[in-house]
Each structure stands twice: as C-alpha cells, then as structure tokens.
Nucleic acid binder design. Structure first.
Length: 426
RNA sequence: GGAGAGGUGGCUGAGUGGUCGAAAGCACCGGCUUGCUAAGCCGGCGUACUCGCAAGGGUACCGUGGGUUCAAAUCCCACCCUCUCCGCCA
C-alpha cells in the first residue's frame, strides 16, 4: 500500500511510476477526491463529537445535581442522529478509498529499467558457462521418466494435471536440496530457520499483497474457514511480525523457511505444460528480510548474492536480471530474477526472484520499528527471495548434469546430502 | 465433539453506564539525592487521524463487527482468539 500522504503530495510522480507498469489503470484523481471527501467528513464528525462529548458531560453533571436536563437531552438526540449520518458517509468513503489503495502496486525504484515486458529486462551478470554437449541433451521429463524418478501420470491420477510424483532418488533429491539450501542460509548467511503454517488467513494474504487483487492465483480452503494455501513462504514469514513495533536493535531480521507452494496458475493454461517447471505444488526455500529503510537496497543485493551461492555450489550456470517496470510484481519496488540455464530448453529460466518491497507490505501488515530515542515508529522495509525454487533446481541438475547414457552425475557439494554420486546406472 | 473460564496500555492487573485513554505495580526514559553496586524521591512514559508557526487543542481506539443510549471498557447480539477439564487423535 502506498502512503496516502505521499500520493497527495506527489500525484505526478506516482502516476508516472504506475504508468510504466503492466496493465496499470489507476485513477489518482479519483483517489485524491475520495481522500479529500473523507477528510472533510472526518473533520466535521470530529467537531460534532467534541460538541456531543461536552454536552454529555454537562448532562451527567446536571443529573448528579438532581437538575432537569431534558432540554439538553432532546437537543443531543438530534445531534446524535446527525453524527450517525455523517459517520456512515465517512465510513463508506473510507472503505472505498481503502479498497482503491489496496489494488495500487508499489512505486518503482529509479534504477528499474522502463519497459513493457521481459524483453526490456536488464542483464546484470552472467555466471558460469553453459556446458557444450557432444550428444543431443534431453529435457528433465525424458530423463526423469527413463530413470524412474518422476511419475507425472500418477500425479495427474491422484490430483490433476500440473502435479507430479517423485520417487526413489528423485524424491530424495528434493529433500537433499532442501537441507542443503537451508544449511547454507542458516549456517553461513545468518538466517533463522522457520517452519511456518502452510495455510494462512486473509489478513496475512493482504499483508503481502496477494489479496485482494490476486485471489484467482490462490487455492482457498473449502468450508467455514478463512484459510488459503500459501503460494510462497514469503507470506507467513513477512507477516510473522505483523502489527508489531520492533525494537531497532532487532533489525535486520533474516528468516529462511522451506515450504511447499500452492499456485492455481490461473491464466497460464497451455504455458509450460510439460514436466514440472510449472506445478500447482512445488517446494521452495524462501528468504525474507525485515530491515531499516536506509539499508534495504544493499540488503537486496546481499539477498540475491545469498541465493546465487546455491547455484555456485551446485556449479550451475546462471544469469541475474533486473526486471523492467512492466515485468516487476505488484508489491516490489525492484526485483532481481536469477535464471538458471536449462539445456533441455536451450534457455535461461527463472529459479529465484528477489525483491525489495520497501514499505509497501509493511504498511499493509502494519509492521514497524522504533529507532532508539525516537518518538514515532517507522515502517520497516521487507524483502523476499527464493533461495531457491527446489523443483526447478532438480530440473537444472538433471538437465545440466546428464550423461550420454541418461544417468545424472550429482554435483559434489550435494553428494553428502543425497548419499549418492550419481542417479542411474554407472 | 462436550463442559467451563477469559480477552484492558511493553508486562501484571483494577475498573460493570457519565469527570476513564483508562487506578496501581513492574519495566523503561529524564532529573535529584546517596562516597561504589543497590535503594529512595520527583517527573515523564500508547497508537492513529486532525487543527495550530509553536505552545497546545480536538477525535478515535479497552479481541473484531454490529446494536441500545444524550453518553459504552462497562449493557445486548454475532464472530474471532486464548486457557482449563473430559472425550478423540499424529
């Protein structure tokens, strides 16, 4: 959520930033109009209430003294009706204003390239060399099915399309990667491991920005519950301190969690239908930071670097992109996508997305801190990034480490976790 | 699932219709005092919106949302949450 005061004072800058995003149709003037109406009503109501409070005290005094208060009482009866009327209008205007504010995306950072779609994303760095094959490399589906470690048909039978069953070393590979990633982030990068709920309520979803605008992307729990399956552990992690005023000394806070992620993938019918690149359920290790505003962009660089370490240890080639204005997500001011090389597709594909959401989520989640000696609390800045998407890491390992006989060599750093040097016949 | 208790400021906890944004204690901050540490005394100490150059003022908030009333932390209704006991269960 944007700061209404900031919109009021910088309407042009806000409009310009929003216009450079994809599909942004925000009527700033309507919002400012509603804001003015609300403030006028609010002010009027405050004054009438002041009058009412004064009179009510007088009534109390008269009654206590055994005197007649009926004249004042009937006057107050009318005043109460007027207040109620204004209150209803004020509440309605405020609700409408809030509704509008909740669907406005974050302001973009000046370093974000302006552009309509991913073609305008900026390459920050390319790390590692894609391997050259002296045979035709297969994709992870052919490799995995031949090895007997994936069963997409079973996934479809048990649930529906976009679900997979991993078996044997395939299942163990996911578990190994989760432990590998968490060990590095907690042991070397200073993150505190969290095991969060995999379902959250609407307030949490609103805090990080999934609701109210993107409910179609989520799975809602049926029945008399206000619960949704998390699309990422970012939601529980970022909301962990919602509503609190944190002591400055606690910042920055680094959290890491593994969770399954559930996404309806509405609107991506026909896209990435093959294999497990785009599933309704996938594992991810997520990194979240809460920090002071002045450090958040440094923290973003460090966050991306933390995610990159995983790819480096696994010796997988990748590149880092800064998403352009049209490609940057709703809550983010700036996003780096880390893309791993996939020989099966002959392309770089996203394996991590690291964003600085500045105070956007903090305002929604009412997530603040107080500086030593300061009177007013301030909103923290929140960041999140995948460290990494586990399913896609499995794909990358299979495709990059495949051998002519269809077996998969396991990156050295991961071997102790998997308890094997190779998947498939040696 | 059955029975009961309860949700008040950072914490403990008083307050059952009017002068309560809320006693008291603890914690915290400032000052004074005391030859150290400790203790004592005085003062301060929630959040948001709003008016004002400021000093300062106004309004709202006692789990959430409604209702009754001139007036609600206090009465009524619904919901959420926590705790205890019984049952069931990984």
């Amino acid at each position: 959520m944007l700061d209404l005061k900031f919109i009021r004072e910088n309407p042009d800058a806000v409009s310009a930033s929003l216009a450079s995003r994809r599909n942004s149709t925000v009527d700033i003037d309507a919002i400012l109009g509603a804001d003015e109406t609300r403030r006028k009503l609010q002010h009027e109501m405050d004054q009438l209430r002041a009058e009412q409070n004064k009179a009510s005290q007088e009534i109390g005094r008269l009654k206590k003294a055994g005197q007649d208060a009926s004249a004042l009482l009937s006057a107050m009866h009318d005043l109460a009706a007027r207040i109620k009327d204004i209150e209803e209008r004020s509440t309605a205007t405020e609700a409408q204003l809030n509704e509008s504010l909740l669907v406005i995306p974050n302001l973009l950072h000046p370093s974000v390239p302006v552009g309509a779609d991913e073609a305008a994303n900026r390459v920050e760095r390319v790390v590692g060399q894609p391997r050259t094959f002296d045979f035709e490399p297969k994709d992870h589906v052919d490799l995995g099915e031949a090895l007997g470690i994936f069963d997409f048909e079973a996934g479809a039978k048990l649930a529906r399309a976009r679900f997979n069953v991993s078996k044997g070393l395939g299942a163990r590979l996911e578990r190994a990667l989760i432990n590998f990633m968490l060990d590095i982030h907690t042991g070397e990068h200073g993150y505190t491991e969290i095991l969060p709920p995999f379902m959250v309520n609407s307030a949490a979803m609103q805090g990080t920005g999934q609701l109210p605008k993107f409910s179609a992307d989520l799975f809602k729990i049926a029945g008399d519950y206000d619960l949704w399956l998390i699309p990422t552990a970012e939601v529980p992690l970022t909301n962990l301190h919602a509503g609190e005023i944190l002591d400055e000394k606690l910042l920055p806070i680094y959290y890491a969690a593994h969770s399954p992620c559930f996404r309806s993938e509405a609107g991506s019918y026909g896209k990435d239908t093959r294999g497990m690149l785009r599933q309704h359920q996938f594992n991810k290790v997520e990194l979240v930071k809460l920090c002071k505003p002045e450090t958040s962009f440094d923290e973003l660089d460090k966050l991306a670097a933390n995610a990159e370490v995983i790819l480096q240890r696994l010796e997988l080639p990748y590149r880092v992109m800064t998403l352009c204005s049209g490609d940057t997500g709703f809550s983010a001011a700036k996003t780096y996508d880390i893309e791993v090389w996939l020989p099966g597709q002959n392309k770089y594909r996203e394996i991590s997305s690291c964003s600085n959401c500045t105070d956007f989520q903090a305002r929604r989640a009412n997530l603040r801190f107080r500086r030593a000696g300061a009177k007013k609390p301030e909103y923290v800045h929140t960041l999140n990034g995948s460290g990494l998407a586990v399913g896609r890491t499995v794909i990358a390992i299979l495709e990059n480490y495949q051998q002519p006989d269809g077996s998969i060599l396991i990156p050295e750093a991961l071997q102790p976790y998997l308890g094997a040097e190779r998947i498939g016949k040696a």
